[in-house]
């Protein structure tokens, strides 16, 4: 049974790959037509008056295929388009790994080869901005302080967007709940920046450019009710200074 399904899937797949590659040329022709409307309406009118119904049908088909494929590609590239829960500067997608995930999330996961955390397994919170809403930058120093939601274990990691820089061996990519140095009341403060800091220092993963924080809570009751998380229950991210 399985051997019957697999060849079919592989036979269909190349077509899909072709279809996905198609948007660029077709999009190009669409753009050409759009530019015609913008600059010379008369030229288009002349073109349209000479156009046969077949040409118009072809135009409609090309527009539909090009625009449809291009928009699908755009919507499923990068992060999840919707379903996020925002808590302070952090965003979680609690349903990303479940069977209740929306089709866009499933498509994004499939394209990236992502294996998201299941609801019973944990919760991933990411932050690309600080509490004031400014994008996290590798040249700045940040203080990530406070408490984490209840969890058996957590890790807080930092990553630059895109491929890692070759030849730059990170001293440390993140902290786990066990490693971190805490204050007497159980709270902690991590200093993220390019220069060496006392305490929990998390070096910037790259010399410049945007960076992103990921807080992963493992075996947490929060995963089932991420919407009820309070702003005080997640670490606050404050910018303390910038090199440039």
């Amino acid at each position: 049974m399985a051997s019957g399904i697999d060849p079919a899937a592989t036979a269909v797949a190349p077509q899909a790959a072709d279809a996905r590659r198609e948007p660029s040329p077709r999009q190009g022709t669409d753009r050409g037509t759009d530019r015609g409307t913008g600059t010379a309406a008369g030229r288009l009118r002349k073109l349209a008056s000479g156009a046969s119904p077949a040409a118009l049908a072809l135009y409609a088909l090309a527009l539909g295929a090009g625009l449809g494929l291009a928009s699908a590609d755009w919507a499923t590239r990068g992060g999840y388009p919707f379903g996020g829960v925002t808590v302070g500067a952090w965003t979680a997608w609690p349903r990303a790994g479940s069977t209740a995930a929306d089709p866009y999330t499933r498509a994004v996961n499939a394209r990236r080869g992502e294996v998201p955390l299941a609801v019973g397994e944990g919760l991933l919170l990411t932050a690309a901005v600080d509490d004031a809403g400014r994008a996290l930058d590798a040249t700045c120093t940040y203080r990530i302080a406070g408490v984490t939601p209840p969890a058996r274990a957590w890790t807080l990691t930092v990553a630059g967007r895109g491929a890692p820089e070759p030849g730059r061996q990170p001293v440390r990519e993140g902290f786990t709940a066990t490693e971190i140095l805490r204050e007497a009341d159980g709270r902690f403060a991590i200093l993220l920046g390019p220069e060496v800091e006392p305490g929990n220092w998390l070096p910037s993963p790259r010399a410049s450019g945007p960076i992103r924080l990921a807080l992963r809570l493992y075996d947490t009751p929060v995963a089932a009710s991420a919407g009820t998380l309070d702003r005080d229950a997640v670490p606050a991210i404050t910018r303390t200074g910038c090199a440039s």
Binding site: A9, V12, A13, A16, A17, A19, Y59, A60, L61, A62, L63, G64, A65, G66, L67, G68, L69, S71, A72, D73, A75, T76, P103, Y104, R106, A107, N109, A110, R111, R112, G113, E114, V115
Partner: peptide
């Protein structure tokens, strides 16, 4: 017609990606 078709193609593509992807888990 083209825009309506684009909508249909968009939805069909998004739904088909998980089944056709060769890079998924």
């Amino acid at each position: 017609c083209g825009l309506a078709l684009a909508g249909i193609v968009h939805v069909a593509t998004v739904l088909a990606i998980p089944a056709l992807s060769e890079t998924d888990a």
